[in-house]
Amino acid sequence: MNFEDKIDAESGVGKFADELGELDEAVSNFRLSVRAWSDAELSRPRAVALPVRRRIWRLAAGWALGCVLVAGSLSGGVYEHLHRQQLARIAADRAAEQQRLAAQERARLEEEDLLAKVDSDVSREVPSAMEPLAQLMAEDESK
């Protein structure tokens, strides 16, 4: 079985004889090239490469990079957590402050109401002899 028949049988395409001839030649040359290269490389004396120290450095650098990444992600997480806690604390403080102010305002208003009530109660206790004068003062104020 020649190459074209093999390709025909294996790929199911055998229409283009010229193209196949070219493919046949190209693949054969590729094979020859690889074989010549392989033979040459096999017969070439080869020095032992990669000094151990470089490997150790690479390993150390790999570990260092890994540690930095882990530390970075951990510290990032911790920072984010603390930051959130701080924001929550600030928000809680603000809310407490607002509540305190609202309570103060409420107390102030209540106090004012109370004082007004007291005033009105006290004002009613004007002696009857002074009543016409009090009415006159009220009229003057309203004018």
């Binding site: 190209a26 693949v27 040359n29 590729f30 090239s33």
Partner: peptide, 8 residues
Amino acid sequence: AKERVRQV
């Protein structure tokens, strides 16, 4: 031929 080998 070399060009063809390179393409392959």
